[in-house]
Design a protein around this nucleic acid. Sequence first.
DNA 1: GTGGTCTAGACCACC
DNA 2: GTGGTCTAGACCACG
Lengths: 120, 120, 120, 120
Amino acid sequence: MVVNLDFKKREPIYEQIISEIERYIALGILKPKEQLPSVRMLAMDLGINPNTVKKAYDILEKKKVIETISTKGTFIAEKTDFVKEEKKNQFLEEMNSILLELEKLGFKKEEILKELKKES
Amino acid sequence: MVVNLDFKKREPIYEQIISEIERYIALGILKPKEQLPSVRMLAMDLGINPNTVKKAYDILEKKKVIETISTKGTFIAEKTDFVKEEKKNQFLEEMNSILLELEKLGFKKEEILKELKKES
Amino acid sequence: MVVNLDFKKREPIYEQIISEIERYIALGILKPKEQLPSVRMLAMDLGINPNTVKKAYDILEKKKVIETISTKGTFIAEKTDFVKEEKKNQFLEEMNSILLELEKLGFKKEEILKELKKES
Amino acid sequence: MVVNLDFKKREPIYEQIISEIERYIALGILKPKEQLPSVRMLAMDLGINPNTVKKAYDILEKKKVIETISTKGTFIAEKTDFVKEEKKNQFLEEMNSILLELEKLGFKKEEILKELKKES
DNA sequence: GTGGTCTAGACCACC
DNA sequence: GTGGTCTAGACCACG
């Protein structure tokens, strides 16, 4: 698992870590029950403060995406299907709000969707 | 011209002002050479500090979207066509990169586009 | 006489007017005893406030470059040789201070002067 | 690094800071990736307001001379060769345009260059 | 009245 | 501690 960070983005580091882990889960690269690197290790790897990794793990735990078992380590949750769904909805929402902006600028939805097909 | 601000967003106020002005230009509501409200006036109107408006104007000037003449005022640039194009391309790029993410997650583009049509 | 103004420069308008008039005198285009446009006329021509032209004329008068004869108008002084000398010294000073900057950056004066010959 | 300021100049303080930093880079005193003093520290040192330093840093960042990473600090960019070149060309351009003015006034380039040699 | 600059200092998130 | 943003308001030159 490679966690990509961009220190120049407005998105805080801990959120970027969360996104990356969820992305790997959604992609099936991180599987249920699999162990995650320890807070310290990941922090070292990324050259960041352990508190930042801790914050990311804490939030993921609250979202039931991962589980921390004291003295044993941190693991991916048993059920992770909802992660993929959540990501999908998130992305769709974003697309819709951009679509709305484009329509405000006078572009027709049909044309925009056609442009998308061409480009990608 | 009505500048809408959302103080709760992560996007800073000065960027929201920039977006709003560019939006009005793209829509043709603000026309080349037209005078913008003075820094002080707009700040008053929006209930914010003049420095915040100034920062927005400064950035717009660097982008050649507006032109400011000391002691005379601030004006929309003579050429503004690029603003609409820039906005459009910006939005399309964003949509394409999200689309790419969704495809990586295993969703087919066709389905996604159908979903978009439904929602709005 | 064409007075060129740049409203975007940091140099104030009244100083630009002064420079332009002195330049025309140094060039021999404006000659001793010649009449200058009235404050109002020049202001109209340049699309600026008469006070600004007045300020320029006042300073030029203090420098004995021009003379105002009430009810008759404003005229170039009888002796204007010093204007050219002043300009020359001004320019030489500027060149020397830039030369100094370049030397601080590690460039040798000889090289710089050679570069100048090439370019112009 | 010693930043020299002259509060009496027309040149604003933030531009003087920019010039000084670029000068030190051109001189090789500030090296790529090196950390700059924090906004607050430099402001304290210079006896000025942090906002003024911030403005200088912001502009230097837009020019890609420095890079700032939120919560980590501000650093000299990896590539800085262009800074010295830019400075040099800037100065040469200035000298050439002054030279042109002097030639318009009827002075020969050879004479002017001789005068320059004498003075320093 | 306009923009240009600067001060003084607050609050925030992040680390 | 760091940078990011913003407030509140001053002073200035210019027009």
